[in-house]
Each structure stands twice: as C-alpha cells, then as structure tokens.
Nucleic acid binder design. Structure first.
Lengths: 109, 109
DNA sequence: TCCGCTTACTAAGTGAAACTGAATAACGAG
DNA sequence: CTCGTTATTCAGTTTCACTTAGTAAGCGGA
C-alpha cells in the first residue's frame, strides 16, 4: 500500500523520505526502511534506499557514522536539515494549493 | 528558483503538479506551466510538461478536450481527482511528520 | 506588409535515479 | 545447527526529468 505508481511519477522522493526519517535521530538503512514504511506507507526496496543514501552522502546532507561492521548508521547534517526544511515548506505550499483546489464539492452541482 | 535539485531526487513530481493545476479548472499546457510556476516555484520546460501530460492521459487521470488546433486543453478526470486527493493525504502525512521532527530546536542544547 | 514577440506545442536525445530481485552474511532463538 | 530476522551489496532494466531546438499560429506596431 501507499504504492508509488510505476510509470508516472513516484510522488515522493526517496531522498526526502530519508531526510525525514533521519530528522528523528540517527538510523541505519534497514531501520529507515521500516520507519519510512510507517510514516509514509512507502515500502522501499533495499536497492532504492541504499542508492539514495549514497547520493545524499555525496551531497553532504547526511553523513555516515562509525560503523560496527554490520550496521551502517547515518546522521543528517546541518545542511541536510536546511534542505529538509526548505523542501517541507515547498511541499506545504503545494499541498495547501492542492487541497484548496480539490476540495469544493467536486462533481457536485 | 524553486529548483529541482539535479542529481538527487526532484522532490516533487511533475504529475502531481499537473493534477493540482488542473484541479483549479481546465487548462492547456502552456498555461499549466505558468500556473505551476506560481504556486510551486518550479518552472517546467515544455518537454517535461508534455511528457507528463501524455502519461497522465494514458493513465486516465486527465483527458484531452476538443482542441482548437492551437491550444490543447486538458481536464482532470474523476479518477484523477481521486488519485490527487490520495496523494495529497500522503503528502500531508509526510510533511507533518517531517515538520514535527525537524522542529524541536535542532542543534540547540 | 513584414518584423518580432508571445503563445503553444512537438520532437530527439541524454543521463540519472527508482525499481526489482537476488546474493551475501552475521546474529539470535529454539 | 538450522531457520528466520536483520542488514547490506550488487546487477540490470525501465522510465522519467531535463535540455534544447524546431515549428507555427496569432498579434501588435512601425
């Protein structure tokens, strides 16, 4: 459930979901998958998640913490928090516009 | 401005933006570009927009209206409205989770 | 009338990312 | 010692977003 529609867009980026997840606290990949599933309903396959982690790290929005060689935890960086806040603001604007427009008794009268 | 970050995700799907735009009323492509620019800050290039329109039409979420051979107007379908509402709900959940988590005095104490 | 601007869409080609799915492996429970 | 969960890596494919360029109708002004 909470399916990302194949063909057509995904409707929410993996990168955003990761940032939201890490905003709660440090996590390793596998826990992010579970967390993201809970708050967004999107179940990510490993390949999708780890690919996004790599790119986010290159961007400097998250950083790897000392790994215990089984789990590889990540932390969101200050730049990551900035980016997240900015994106959330944009998201809110779009969501509000959409809600306003899709609300008024569609199909009725 | 309102840049979609090249590499890394786009953070908002073109398809969603189109649905929000059409939720306000019928529009042809060029006007959607302007409308979307206004409410989301994302300026789409023609190729991006028209590609999304094609896929949305195949999906049955929008439909082409009789064209005057210069403008090609589109209308959102009932299924499109359903899909939009569902996506907005998901978006709101993500946005709320993100805002809650990114809020509490980050980096302070 | 013809020049140029805005409007409006079409089309081609590229790269990056999301997705699937399978392989690997450590660890705990029983 | 075996099975299920935890956790990550990797390979391969699809698809979308992006850029850019091209076509063309309509309109205002000189």
């Amino acid at each position: 459930m909470g399916r990302r529609t194949p063909d057509l867009g995904r409707f929410t980026d993996v990168a955003l979901l990761v940032l939201v997840s890490l905003a709660e606290g440090d996590k390793h990949g596998y826990r992010m998958i579970q967390d993201i599933e809970e708050f967004s309903g999107s179940s990510l396959e490993p390949g999708t998640l780890y690919g996004a982690l790599m790119r986010l790290e290159e961007r400097g929005w998250i950083e790897a913490l000392p790994s215990d060689e089984r789990r590889r935890p990540y932390r969101i960086t200050p730049q990551g928090v900035d980016a997240l806040r900015e994106q959330l603001a944009t998201l809110r604007r779009i969501e509000e516009t959409g809600s306003r427009r899709a609300r008024p008794s569609w199909g009725v009268a």
